[in-house]
């Protein structure tokens, strides 16, 4: 497992190095660069900070200071199914915290964490702007409105089933090929 992660990170760094050629050293490019990395790879691996610092010719600490300031930047890879629970005002008054707790309970992780198998990650977000559908949870790119604690289990089960179906498909393809 560790080796694959290392290999992944090496590939990410290579990609970043390639992309950085398009950016100048102007300090104003720093946040766009970090956004580019996050967008391509969903998080900022530790070595990417150093890489960006080298490119910009500024101390790594400066890059780190900026990256830790903004909500957008993540330092750990998210799960394959990132779950965001909206805790904006409208969702809050409709007991979104109970939804979040229920996800935490069912997934066995706390908000801000990724499950050990990297299948799920759980996050709270301030507002996804679908207040009339409160409470809202976002799984991957899909927004689920009118959430209820009792819907959490079904939602997770559906993801699990989809995953198993996909695996079975793969298996089948493999068998057919061989």
């Amino acid at each position: 497992m560790d080796e694959t992660i290392q290999a992944q990170e090496a590939a990410i760094l290579e990609d970043i190095g390639e992309q950085l050629k398009d950016y100048d050293q102007n300090r104003g490019s720093l946040i766009p660069i970090l956004q580019m990395i996050q967008q391509r790879h969903q998080y900022l691996p530790p070595d990417s900070i150093r890489k960006v610092a080298e490119h910009m010719e500024i101390p790594s600490s400066e890059v780190y200071g900026v990256a830790t300031f903004y909500n957008q930047f993540r330092f750990h890879p998210p799960g394959k199914n990132p779950i965001k629970v909206c805790l904006g005002t409208a969702c809050h008054v409709r007991a979104a915290d109970v939804i979040l707790e229920n996800f935490e309970r069912k997934l066995g992780i706390k908000e801000g964490q990724t499950s050990d198998d990297r299948e799920f990650s759980l996050e709270r977000v301030a507002c996804v702007g679908c207040c009339a559908l409160a409470p809202v949870a976002v799984v991957g790119e899909t927004i689920h409105g009118h959430m209820a604690p009792s819907k959490v289990e079904g939602l997770l089960m559906r993801i699990q089933i989809h995953k198993e179906m996909a695996e079975r498909e793969k298996e089948k393809e493999k068998n057919e090929q061989s």
Binding site: R27, G28, S29, I31, L34, V66, F69, N71
Partner: peptide
């Protein structure tokens, strides 16, 4: 320019700092 998510950047001087590539 894409803001990276910091409520304080609603404050003009903080918004400018962030565009300049600093902590807001």
């Amino acid at each position: 320019f894409q803001g990276s998510g910091a409520f304080v950047c609603g404050e003009e001087t903080a918004l400018i700092r962030s565009m300049e590539g600093h902590r807001g």
